[in-house]
Amino acid sequence: MKTISVVTPCYNEQDNVEEVYRQVRNVMAGIGRYRYEHIFIDNSSLDNTVPILKRLAASDPNVKVIINARNFGHIRSPIHALLQASGDAIVLIVADLQDPTSMIVTFVEEWEAGSYMVIGIKKTSEEHSLVFFLRKQYYRIAERLSNIETFQNFTGFGLYDRKVIEFVRSFGDPYPYFRGMIAEIGLPYKKIYYDQPKRKFGITKNNWYTLYDIGMLGIINHSRVPLRLATFVGFGGAALSLFVAVAYTIAKVIFWNTFSLGLAPTVIGVFFIASIQLVFMGVMGEYIGAIYTQVQKRPYAVELDRINFDIEPQVPTPVPQSVSIEYEAASMSSMESQAQPIEMEGT
């Protein structure tokens, strides 16, 4: 019997981890024809996430827990967990319940039909409309700059065959852009469109810096356009400067007594050129920083503890309602929000 691994990264998700565990187990029990393991990797949470995960692992041997020695960030920690999974297929799903667990059924069906990758694409989102609009614009820009086909509105939520995960391992990238890796691999895939619900418990752990970090990583890993743009702007600026210099020289010769250069154009020009230089120095710095990270070859994460990894996965049964009564109302509302029409597109 084959095994399906479900990987859930979490950080300060005490309000969500038990509910996502219960929903995933019930979905896998409904499928019924696979063993499964649910791997939670905790990025050194400061709340009660770890005690809750330890309690779940003690009551269910299919729950496996990795506790990081410190916070290794939102990019390295999930990859580490993916590479620890033993399943024939691996599902990546976040802990905040914004990835509908009911879609795992469709993911598995498409995998059984021959797709190596089944990826969830956000069709709509209940997050702030401005934020969703800005995300869509970023994905469009990233795709235009990239030298490969990328997936717009894709966060990593999906199912990946063991072969895909082994290709990810072979990249050996110490600071990987997982979404880009999936696009780079290029094996047959299926897109599943879904409506992303709003986070119901807790607050997002993303901030401006983490969003910028992953956004810039997505561009520099798959495009040389920013570097070449710096070169083109340099040539254009040089040509414009030469044209202005010749024009001013001619004007001064013709209107020797009345034409005055003035200080303002010089000051404005100097500051403009300096700002352009700083921008492109920053761009080049991003590429140099990426090279520096590659050279360091640091591990994705250092584990403080791991639980239940010596136990073979089993076919799950539904979670009894008595396991987490306090989450019953939340579970019902969450499952109702997931009952959205599904559209599929493949290649």
Rank of each mutant, 00 (worst) to 15 (best):
L159K: 04
V283T: 03
Y177T: 04
I311L: 12
V279G: 08
D15A: 15
E336R: 11
P341K: 07
R298E: 15
F132R: 11
F178S: 02
V7T: 01
I119A: 11
R25Y: 09
R306H: 09
V17P: 01
G234L: 01
A330R: 09
D15G: 13
L46I: 14
S115Q: 12
I219L: 02
A183I: 07
I121N: 02
S146P: 05
K200E: 11
P316Q: 07
M103N: 14
L83R: 01
E110I: 08
T231D: 15
S102K: 08
I288V: 13
N153A: 12
K64F: 02
K252V: 02
A58H: 07
M28R: 10
A81P: 01
F107H: 05
K198D: 07
V6P: 06
S86D: 13
T317W: 10
I307R: 03
L82N: 00
S337L: 07
T317A: 13
K64A: 01
K54V: 06
A85E: 01
E112S: 04
G180R: 00
G202E: 01
G262I: 03
K163T: 11
Y189W: 08
Y248D: 13
S125Q: 08
S129W: 13
S333V: 12
V7I: 03
I52W: 06
Y160I: 01
D161P: 01
F133K: 15
A329Q: 12
S129A: 15
E326P: 00
F154V: 11
S129K: 14
V17E: 00
M1L: 07
V108L: 03
Y177F: 08
V279F: 12
A230F: 00
S102E: 09
H128L: 12
F235Q: 13
F72E: 00
A95H: 00
P313N: 02
P320C: 04
P265C: 03
M1F: 03
A113H: 05
S5Q: 06
I79M: 15
P100A: 02
F243L: 13
E143K: 15
I52S: 11
V27Q: 06
Y34I: 00
K200N: 08
D15P: 08
P318G: 06
E336I: 13
S5E: 04
I192F: 05
F167V: 14
R199M: 12
L261C: 06
A329S: 13
R306P: 00
Q98L: 09
L83Y: 03
T249H: 13
S77V: 14
F151V: 11
E286L: 15
K297L: 09
R144G: 09
G282Q: 08
